[in-house]
């Protein structure tokens, strides 16, 4: 396929999506041309956000110096905020699992331990996708925010389930684990608010129109 032709198709595809979004009629984006599900622009945006999510959360975690409740909440808040913005910028099904997969690959290049959580994270993302679909798609901010929250809560529940399995002989450790998951969840809910505020700023600046 000719590269210039592909660029023209992508531009036409974006223009069509822009028109549809302005009319407020479309929640789900139309498929990209030539059999590709995502356009180049969307894939680049997913790559950029995956990098920033991983780099910023690792940095915040390091700055906390270990089991720091403030940075734990801040890390979750950052993750949810950036995921909400990404899902508004690329409003397509499977964006969340792809972003999590790319984040895991970046994690493999930076710090290999993150790879262990990938299966649970992707399963949680699929639940989040299901929630967004059940609520009516990507057309409304409320649906996206709830979808991300469902994915995050499912991921934390899976983590807690794993902790229960591994530390069932030490109830004291389980209580500590539950406390830290609770603190992380506070950051997650705070992230939903900051995500919505970011969306207001982006709409005000005309960067996102739906």
């Amino acid at each position: 396929m000719d590269a210039a032709q592909s660029g023209a198709y992508d531009a036409a595809h974006r223009a069509r999506r822009g028109d549809q979004a302005r009319r407020g009629a479309v929640a789900e984006a139309a498929p990209a041309p030539h059999g590709a599900y995502w356009s180049t622009r969307e894939l680049v945006t997913i790559g950029v956000f995956a990098t920033v999510i991983k780099a910023s959360t690792i940095m915040v975690a390091y700055m906390g110096g270990g089991m720091n409740p403030v940075t734990l909440a801040a890390k979750n808040c950052l993750y949810v905020t950036l995921m909400i913005v990404l899902l508004h910028k690329v409003p397509r099904s499977w964006t969340m699992p792809l972003a999590v997969g790319i984040t895991a690959m970046v994690s493999l290049l930076i710090m290999g331990s993150g790879v262990l959580y990938v299966p649970a994270s992707i399963a949680a993302c699929l639940l989040g996708e299901g929630a967004i679909r059940a609520l009516g798609g990507y057309g409304r901010t409320r649906n996206v925010v709830l979808g991300v929250l469902v994915a995050e809560i499912a991921s934390k529940a899976a983590g807690f389930g794993l902790s229960c399995l591994i530390m069932r002989e030490q109830p004291g450790m389980l209580a500590t684990s539950a406390l830290f998951i609770g603190i992380g969840s506070t950051g997650t809910f705070l992230g939903a608010f900051t995500g919505v505020r970011f969306m207001e700023e982006l709409r005000h600046a005309g960067i996102i129109s739906h």
Binding site: M1, A3, S6, D10, T40, V44
Partner: peptide, 19 residues
């Protein structure tokens, strides 16, 4: 977001496409 757009434009001009 602007940098993502710039990188995407550069990729499209270089003929990089998912398809």
């Amino acid at each position: 977001l602007y940098s993502a757009d710039d990188l995407a434009m550069a990729a499209e001009l270089k003929g990089i496409s998912a398809a």
